[in-house]
Design a protein around this nucleic acid. Structure first.
Length: 265
DNA sequence: AGTCACCTGATT
DNA sequence: AATCAGGTGACT
């Protein structure tokens, strides 16, 4: 489910509902969901207050009052939300934090690719340093993108999905940004013309901001996101919204890529 | 960069 | 029965 816009929508909701909450008990219903930690490591969150909710790339980071951090990555199908009664939760909940006021904070994740960990500050810093720039921050400049591109022999789509350069783009928004910038997903990054770098630099925040708006609005029920309308993602065989050409689906690194063969040469 | 692996479904 | 799914980490 989640790329940067969905994670951001989840964070905004959690900021209202979970800031200041006190974790009474941690319950690991599926040990795989805390890998490589053990359920006993997750117990370090017990008794602590959630001070704040941050996002870094696709990670949800919560500093706790006992100096540990709660780090959640949602994988493919994860969701992280507050339920009114910790005793009543869906079957797909993998990790549950019973809150002092009776509510529950849960990782709901039917495919079990998501992770919740309780980590020390040092490890959180490491995770941050392994990630590239936040595409919605002022640090994401044309110069940054140009320099990263200059050094990369990767196809554009693979480059955008690599979290070490830009943090938070996944399969959907990489494809969408490339469409908006009129770049072929197979185009090697270091061979991009300067005007294409500028176009891509503008397209990324544009696509993400629009998606955050839609996602934040549509994120009502836990575990449910309204489908945004995409330029190319999931639209193989349908006409391009700009030129009418049939959208193509190809495979890159084992994932599907959608693009317009005419607009993105 | 490609391929498999990790999981659980829905869809064809 | 086979294929596909918005992610990432390990291995080749």
């Amino acid at each position: 489910m989640p790329e940067l816009p969905e994670v951001e929508a989840i964070c905004r909701k959690l900021r209202k509902e979970a800031t200041g909450a006190i974790i009474k008990r941690a319950e690991v219903l599926r040990p795989r969901s805390v890998h490589p930690q053990k359920p006993s490591d997750i117990a370090h969150a017990e008794g602590a207050k959630i001070l704040r909710i941050d996002r870094r790339g696709k990670n949800i980071l919560m500093p706790l009052s006992n100096h540990y951090w709660l780090r959640t990555h949602l994988g493919m199908t994860g969701n992280f939300y507050v339920i009114p009664d910790a005793r009543m939760h869906p079957a797909s909940v993998r990790v549950l934090f019973a809150l002092k006021d009776g509510r529950g904070l849960v990782l709901d994740d039917f495919r079990v690719f998501g992770r919740v960990n309780v980590l020390e500050q040092e490890r959180i810093d490491e995770i941050g340093s392994e990630l590239g720039v936040e595409p919605l921050s002022r640090a994401f400049t044309v110069a940054y993108l140009r320099d990263a591109a200059k050094a990369s022999p990767k196809p554009a789509k693979i480059f955008l999905m690599d979290q070490r350069f830009i943090a938070g783009l996944g399969n959907i928004y990489s494809a969408e940004a490339l469409f908006v910038a009129c770049i072929n997903p197979k185009k090697v990054m270091k061979k991009l013309r300067p005007d294409k770098i500028v176009a891509l630099h503008a397209a990324i925040p544009e696509v993400l901001k629009k998606a955050i708006k839609v996602t934040t609005r549509s994120y009502k029920k836990p575990g449910y996101f309204e489908e945004a309308d995409f330029w190319v993602y999931g639209r193989a065989g349908e006409p391009c919204k700009r030129c009418g050409t049939k959208i193509k689906r190809i495979e890159q690194a084992g994932r599907s890529t959608f693009f317009c063969p005419k607009c993105q040469r």
